[in-house]
């Protein structure tokens, strides 16, 4: 059908449309970021004027064993969190799309997201407690060994990842659901006429048409889960033995507990560059900038 919008350069209306967003971008994002990048080249304890020290913070970070360990556990978290969350949310969105129109179910699914994440973390901290938690009571009841969910090095990060999956899966499902709703109904009619089974409908109709939204969701959740902080802060505090000292938590610790703001800024710059790289690669791989829906 190939109807094209006029090729006229629309830069004037575009700029007008961008004015308010640009004010916010410049004042509340770009300026603080430029300042932060500058501070990453300084020795700055927040309470005294920063002194320029060139690349020293970056050199120190390179030799900082805690930094490398924190990167490793962060990747572990992102992998578990995003993997589990995306798969479950996608399944859930399709289920909601294909099997129910109930508003109650939609409301229920998003309920965990209504509870502040600090509270969610505390609730699970309790449910998963070794001595007083219901989960370990059940595990013990069926004759298995109790698990130190937040306290053992092997379990701590996966547990935290699971808690956040629990809170965000309904939210992610709603985002994907919004995408499913934008798929024209007649393609399902066509699939039905063809006699396609549930999985075939998913693979050849739903998934391709959902791709732009899926790409968006992946970029946003990956970027978001790299910045995990609250759940760790109220449960493990980075332990046991660095097992949950994710990069963003380490940055906060350096900045506000150890008053090493210059160093923390350098860590933050590294995290930003890493995230920007990942997001741009994702965007390219997933071709997020275009739609499969023919225009």
């Amino acid at each position: 059908m190939a109807a094209k919008v006029s090729r006229d350069n629309q830069i004037v209306p575009a700029m007008l449309f961008l004015i308010p967003a640009s004010i916010g971008f410049l004042a509340f994002f770009l300026w603080p970021t430029i300042r932060g990048i500058y501070l990453s080249f300084t020795d700055y304890n927040l309470l005294r004027d920063p002194t320029f020290i060139g690349f020293q913070n970056y050199i120190d970070i390179f030799n900082d064993a805690v930094f490398w360990r924190s990167m490793a556990v962060t990747f572990q978290y992102v992998f578990i969190n995003v993997g589990l969350q995306t798969v479950i949310a996608l399944a859930l969105a399709v289920l909601m799309h294909r099997f129910t129109r109930s508003m109650i179910i939609r409301g229920v699914v998003v309920l965990p997201y209504l509870i502040a994440n600090v509270i969610v973390a505390l609730v699970w901290f309790w449910l998963a407690d070794y001595s007083l938690g219901l989960i370990n009571a059940v595990i013990d009841g069926i004759g298995l060994n109790k698990i130190g969910f937040f306290g053992s090095e092997a379990w701590a990060m996966p547990t935290i990842a699971f808690v956040n999956v629990w809170r965000h899966v309904g939210y992610t499902a709603l985002l994907l659901f919004a995408g499913l709703q934008a798929i024209p109904r007649d393609v399902y009619e066509a699939a039905e006429v063809d006699g396609a089974g549930e999985f075939r409908v998913f693979r050849s109709v739903t998934l391709p048409l959902l791709r732009p939204i899926l790409a968006f969701v992946l970029v946003v959740t990956v970027v978001g889960s790299f910045q995990i902080f609250d759940t760790i802060a109220v449960t493990t505090g980075g332990g046991p033995v660095d097992a949950t000292r994710a990069i963003n938590f380490y940055i906060f610790e350096r900045a506000f507990e150890r008053f090493d703001f210059g160093y923390a800024s350098a860590l933050a710059v590294i995290l930003m560059i890493l995230l920007a790289t990942i997001a741009l690669i994702q965007n390219r791989l997933l071709r997020a900038n275009e739609s499969d829906m023919e225009r």
């Binding site: 901290f125 070794y130 938690g133 306290g151 379990w155 449960t235 493990t236």
Partner: peptide, 10 residues
Amino acid sequence: MPSLAAQTGI
């Protein structure tokens, strides 16, 4: 005394 793993919680 509980292990470190057992006492990270309540």
